[in-house]
Amino acid sequence: MNIFRLVADLMHLGSILILLLKMFTSRSCAGISFKTQALYLIVFVTRYLDLFTHFVSVYNTFMKIFFISSAGYILYMMRVPLKDTYNKHLDAFRWEFLLGGAGVLALVFTHKYTVIETLWTYSIFLEMMAILPQLLQLQRTGEAETITTHYLFALGAYRALYIVNWIYRYETEHHVDAISTMAGIVQTALYCDFFYVYFTRVLKGKRFKLP
């Protein structure tokens, strides 16, 4: 564990708390992609199967359980109490391609052909693209509530800090995981346009609005 990864994980945890806060305070899930949230649940479940086989630390176990359970709870919120505020027509990304594409990439690139290992690789490639339905929705509406942009910023910052963590690990441990690193760089790059608008507008007190 290093400081970059710790802060990254706390940003990730914080992003989820911001999303829950948005849902609780506005009693609405408007602007949030159900597909992206569902993809995150699949990502966490397929990646954290090692909860049952491989103990890392109390911190690691706690975070894994938090990510799986909060993702499940968010889906429940969107499907049951806040169902009427969900706009299906804006959440139009063809996510079958993401589910299938990540499957092909996992079968090609996995380190080992075991079920747990292949599902771990699947989760990495699925997470790489899981934000796309959310970004498409943002593009379609052209604007977003400020709290939703804070959620996305925290999520993007978590990904960006993981890259710093890998550089640090490479320098100190001479250790690099090609799959995580390549997928992580692609995933972070997807946030570039969002970051630009966030820094130039939201942080200056203006509304998030695409040009």
Binding site: V56, F67, W166, H175, A178, S180
Partner: peptide, 10 residues
Amino acid sequence: NDSPKNHDEL
């Protein structure tokens, strides 16, 4: 650390 994986990461 000869593992190619980062399985201690979240």
